[in-house]
Write a protein that binds this DNA or RNA. Structure first.
Length: 674
DNA sequence: ATAGGGTTATAA
DNA sequence: TTATAACCCTAT
């Protein structure tokens, strides 16, 4: 259908689309049909039909409700051409919102769609309207029989079979075509006929051959071809397209040629569900464009699957046909477990790629595998990076690194053992962070003084956390006894600490893994309490992701040997220079890394960035006074330490001499007069 | 211990 | 997106 659009020649298509939309045909069918109808067919209701179809598609889109624009949506751009007019949009509620709620309501599918033209026509025929010529009534295939039941008649004026060898049928879809009248069921089949017949020229030819062959066999075998064609209705449209309407529109695959043509497609659309699950997973953190691509792919793929489903042969033939050209022969079979796709190498459009075991994956499965690998790699990258930073920090503070430049790590010094230990401790420290913050969050209404003195650090998002992907949110469903007990006993925390938690929590995707682990660690007595399979998966995944050796043992040891109260833990937190409660560090270090710890003066944790604490007016005044007192014209250096001591009663406890210096610099920058 | 450049979080 | 303040890193 590449000819220039002629409004009248497209009329049957428009009517078909309109009818299908009106009758809740499945989205794939509607999209296929929209794809075929040029956008510039504006006369004769082309755009109206498309709009109706679009709305029907939108209505059936996952998660959408009538009159509500949520999640992903579809956009109909009447200025764009062809199928490109149908686009997936994300964040419909945001900037990309294309249809306002009022617009959606205005276009309410159930109340807004006009009665379709064919329906009107059918009604006119059935009402024996005198407005229609008799030949049109005859050709309609609708006739009021004597018993009052509307019957469909084959082409011609009698009930003999239609002897048109060009007839093919496609089963009506299994889904989404409900409660159709007989005539409309036929229309659905006819439209499928139209789509496939024109979309796949090879199919067109091949099917015709099969049909011809079959008819020939029927004649040779003496079968009554007339009865074979019984109750078929053939209509030749102005476009030279054969429309076929089956009698019941539900199980037309019983035709031998149809079996051969359809092959054996999976009856369950497992893959689609599976992929939607994958797409909705937060584990996949590809960017929005990728996501859009993926979703659009899925949409297209779903359409294809729907078509395949609708083409599925219920008779159980096992022949597999190329998903592109619908022909057999040498096919590449997707190696994914649940994927049934097969495709010709030539139909791929690109050279097929194989994995290390020479397994082929269809483009859809290949893409999702790649996304999965990408996600895993990112997690591994984050962990490794933190391990490196941790090691650098330790190297700087360690006597072992006394030789040479302390600020640079030599590769030769990074033994596998050290890396593993750092990795381990890094995970633990993050677990502690999150756990601590979890308690804060659950006690968000309060205040306490966590600070001890200079050197103590409340942590916020680590400066070494380059990955700014949003972490998964631990939902309010995270309950465990140990946490509740801790919450009851820990000192109350101030709001800023809560801010610190929020900053931490949303600051890094890599924390998601730690959060999962932390969730596991919270279980009392090392028992992993899960409420459902999903929880269990997360817990197992967390342990796996933690890279903690013998994590199973660790989990048990950790909690069984921890008789201390939450208050003690919190105290530990405040006394640890790097906010590393002993609670978790201790059992972890019992995992065979104690030996090394003897050589390391400080616990090895990443250098976390302090939380930001704005200077109060009083502090600024104290600083000004200190500068006035201790500054000397002949000495270009400022005794910040003395100033700090001078204003110790006023400055926040965590302020350092460097902070004073920085603040003074900022004050001078803002107001040189100071 | 300090200076100054660099980084990051956050509000506008 | 940008400006700014708070904080960090490193040379001296």
């Amino acid at each position: 259908m590449t000819s220039s659009p002629n409004a009248s020649s497209w009329l049957p298509w428009i009517w078909a689309l309109e009818t299908l939309a009106y009758n809740h045909a499945d989205s794939s069918l509607l999209i296929d049909l929209m794809k075929l109808i040029p956008d510039n067919v504006v006369d004769n209701g082309g755009n109206v039909a498309k709009e109706s179809a679009f709305l029907r598609i939108l209505e059936g889109f996952p998660g959408s409700r009538k009159g509500e624009c949520c999640g992903d949506s579809l956009k109909l751009d009447s200025n764009a051409g062809g199928f490109g007019s149908l686009k997936l949009l994300r964040k419909c509620s945001g900037r990309n919102h294309e249809l306002s709620e009022s617009e959606m309501l205005r276009l309410d599918v159930d109340t807004g769609l006009p009665k379709c033209t064919l329906r009107k026509l059918k009604d006119m025929i059935l009402k024996d309207s005198h407005l229609l010529p008799s030949y049109l009534k005859e050709r309609s295939g609708l006739l009021k029989c004597s018993d009052g039941v509307t019957k469909r008649l084959p082409e011609g004026s009698n009930c003999d079979a239609a002897e048109n060898p060009k007839v093919r049928d496609l089963s009506s879809g299994k889904r989404g075509i409900n409660d159709l009248t007989t005539a409309n069921e036929g229309m659905v089949s006819a439209c499928r006929e139209l789509i496939v017949y024109n979309a796949y020229p090879d199919v067109k030819a091949a099917t015709k051959r099969k049909w011809d062959t079959f008819c020939t066999q029927q004649v040779i075998e003496g079968n009554d071809s007339a009865s074979f064609h019984e109750n078929r209705h053939v209509e030749d449209t102005s476009g030279g397209i054969v429309l076929y309407s089956g009698r019941d529109g539900s199980n037309l695959d019983s035709e031998p040629w149809a079996k051969s043509f359809h092959g054996d497609m999976p009856s369950e659309n497992v893959d689609d569900n599976h992929r939607r699950e994958i797409l909705s997973s937060d584990d996949i953190d590809h960017d929005e464009n990728d996501d859009s691509i993926a979703r659009e792919d899925i949409l297209l793929e779903t359409q294809n699957s729907d078509s395949q489903d609708s083409l599925a042969n219920v008779n159980g033939t096992k022949e597999q046909l190329c998903m592109m050209c619908k022909l057999g022969d040498q096919l590449l079979v997707c190696s994914s477990g649940s994927c049934q796709r097969v495709v010709h190498e030539r139909c791929l459009g690109f050279a097929p790629t194989f994995d290390a075991k020479r397994r082929f994956y269809c483009p859809f499965c290949a893409y999702f595998r790649a996304v999965s690998e990408y996600s895993d790699s990112k997690k591994q990258y984050a962990l490794t990076k933190n391990a490196l930073l941790s090691f650098k920090n330790r190297l700087r503070n360690s006597d072992i690194s006394g030789r040479g430049d302390r600020n640079h790590v030599r590769d030769s010094e990074v033994s596998d053992k050290c890396t593993e230990q750092n990795n381990l401790e890094n995970v633990v420290s993050r677990v502690n962070q999150v756990q601590s913050m979890m308690r804060m969050r659950e006690k968000s209404s309060v205040s306490c003084d966590l600070s001890s003195r200079v050197g103590e650090r409340d942590v916020t998002c680590g400066g070494n956390m380059a990955d700014k992907q949003n972490a998964e949110t631990i939902g309010s469903s995270v309950y465990c006894q140990s946490t509740k007990e801790q919450v009851q006993k820990v000192p109350e925390l101030d709001v800023q600490n809560c801010k610190a938690y929020n900053s931490l929590h949303g600051g890094s995707k890599q924390l998601a893994v730690v959060e999962k682990l932390q969730k596991v660690l919270q279980q009392p007595n090392g028992v992993i309490l899960v409420t459902n399979n999903e929880e269990q998966k997360i817990a197992l995944r967390a342990v796996k992701d933690s890279k903690v050796p013998d994590s199973d043992k660790y989990l048990k040891i950790s909690h069984r040997n921890d008789p201390r109260t939450g208050a003690d833990r919190e105290q530990d937190v405040s006394n640890q220079p790097h906010v590393l409660p002993r609670e978790l560090a201790k059992p972890l270090r019992s995992l065979g890394v104690q030996k090394q710890e003897q050589h390391i003066p400080y616990p090895s944790v990443p250098q976390y960035r302090r939380k930001k604490v704005p200077w109060s007016d009083a502090e600024e005044e104290a600083l000004k006074e200190g500068v006035r007192r201790f500054a000397s014209d002949n000495n270009r250096t400022m005794p910040w330490k003395r100033i700090l001591e001078f204003g110790a009663q006023i400055f926040e406890k965590h302020r350092t001499a460097i902070d004073l210096k920085d603040k003074w610099r900022n004050m001078c920058k803002a107001s040189p007069v100071v």
